[in-house]
Amino acid sequence: METLILASGSRYRKHLLQRLQIPFSVLPPDIDESPLSGEPAIALAERLAATKAEIIGRDHPGSVVIGSDQVALLDEALLGKPGTVANAEAQLALCSGRVVEFFTAVCVYWDGAMQQTNVPYQVEFRELTSAEIKRYVELEQPLDCAGSFKCEGLGSTLFRRLNGEDPTALEGLPLIALSSMLRHWGIDPLQRQV
């Protein structure tokens, strides 16, 4: 089996990839993740996923490298990682009663060849009180999550409905799409790994 590398410093992506039970290493790339002027959210996610995979892949020939990036969009505004409690509370107040779109891009790079996809997901928030927002942020501390929530935890209490093909895309790494891409490169989680 080829060496598999996750080009990400995200503990969430690492945890998700571990579900596939394939040995891998983690090498976070050092890149500027700022959007380009006028760059659409989907294009931003795809560019960053591809850049992460390609940078690590060029330095590790023969390795299969996974890059991924997620962008959250409320109307036309990008929702970044809040970083602080105040920012998380403000972000959730903006999301209350509204729909946030997530675009999670994943790219698999192997010796100059690349395969990429983008998996959309929509989150419809219920109307949230300021007390609920404060308590949620206090309990889960979602300061490193775009949109200021963790859907795999208490974040599910914030929603009216979710809409998408792959719930792991919302967590940061679309495992359904990634599994298909890895099989394309001869890496199958359901085959005995040697």
Results as ranks from 00 to 15, higher is better:
residue 78 L to D: 01
residue 18 Q to P: 08
residue 59 D to T: 14
residue 10 S to V: 07
residue 16 L to E: 00
residue 70 Q to V: 07
residue 129 T to A: 10
residue 146 A to G: 05
residue 122 Q to S: 14
residue 115 Q to D: 13
residue 182 L to Y: 05
residue 193 Q to Y: 05
residue 150 K to N: 01
residue 61 P to C: 08
residue 9 G to K: 03
residue 94 L to F: 03
residue 94 L to G: 08
residue 119 V to T: 09
residue 31 I to A: 10
residue 69 D to A: 13
residue 183 R to T: 09
residue 47 R to I: 10
residue 172 G to F: 04
residue 126 R to F: 13
residue 154 L to N: 05
residue 76 E to K: 15
residue 130 S to D: 14
residue 119 V to H: 01
residue 165 E to K: 11
residue 39 E to C: 12
residue 62 G to V: 14
residue 147 G to N: 03
residue 45 A to M: 11
residue 116 Q to R: 12
residue 45 A to I: 10
residue 29 P to L: 08
residue 98 R to A: 11
residue 43 A to C: 14
residue 139 L to R: 15
residue 125 F to W: 07
residue 15 H to L: 08
residue 27 L to W: 01
residue 14 K to T: 10
residue 89 E to Q: 12
residue 131 A to W: 12
residue 158 L to E: 02
residue 111 D to G: 09
residue 193 Q to L: 10
residue 155 G to Y: 11
residue 147 G to D: 06
residue 88 A to L: 01
residue 101 E to D: 09
residue 184 H to Q: 13
residue 92 L to V: 06
residue 43 A to N: 03
residue 85 V to S: 04
residue 72 A to M: 09
residue 121 Y to V: 11
residue 56 I to N: 03
residue 117 T to D: 11
residue 20 L to M: 10
residue 41 A to P: 13
residue 142 P to A: 02
residue 19 R to T: 06
residue 141 Q to H: 13
residue 16 L to Y: 01
residue 189 P to T: 00
residue 56 I to R: 00
residue 102 F to D: 00
residue 131 A to Q: 12
residue 63 S to A: 14
residue 66 I to F: 11
residue 44 L to Y: 04
residue 115 Q to L: 15
residue 132 E to A: 14
residue 12 Y to D: 11
residue 99 V to Q: 04
residue 22 I to D: 01
residue 99 V to S: 07
residue 179 S to I: 00
residue 27 L to D: 00
residue 10 S to R: 07
residue 85 V to Y: 11
residue 89 E to Y: 07
residue 62 G to S: 06
residue 108 V to N: 05
residue 86 A to P: 01
residue 190 L to S: 05
residue 117 T to W: 02
residue 139 L to Y: 05
residue 114 M to H: 06
residue 6 L to K: 09
residue 122 Q to R: 14
residue 59 D to K: 12
residue 142 P to K: 04
residue 185 W to F: 15
residue 57 G to M: 12
residue 37 S to R: 12
residue 131 A to C: 09
residue 182 L to I: 06
residue 174 P to Y: 09
residue 64 V to P: 02
residue 112 G to I: 06
residue 133 I to M: 04
residue 42 I to H: 03
residue 163 N to Q: 02
residue 147 G to H: 05
residue 167 P to W: 00
residue 68 S to V: 08
residue 92 L to H: 03
residue 101 E to K: 03
residue 65 V to Y: 07
residue 163 N to S: 13
residue 142 P to F: 05
residue 183 R to W: 02
residue 152 E to G: 13
residue 10 S to M: 04
residue 39 E to R: 13
residue 105 A to P: 07
residue 122 Q to W: 11
residue 56 I to S: 05
residue 42 I to S: 15
residue 49 A to V: 07
residue 35 P to I: 02
residue 157 T to K: 15
residue 76 E to C: 04
residue 64 V to A: 07
residue 126 R to M: 12
residue 43 A to G: 09
residue 94 L to W: 14
residue 123 V to P: 00
residue 118 N to G: 14
residue 133 I to F: 05
residue 12 Y to N: 03
residue 42 I to W: 07
residue 32 D to P: 08
residue 51 T to H: 08
residue 55 I to H: 06
residue 129 T to C: 09
residue 194 V to R: 15
residue 66 I to S: 12
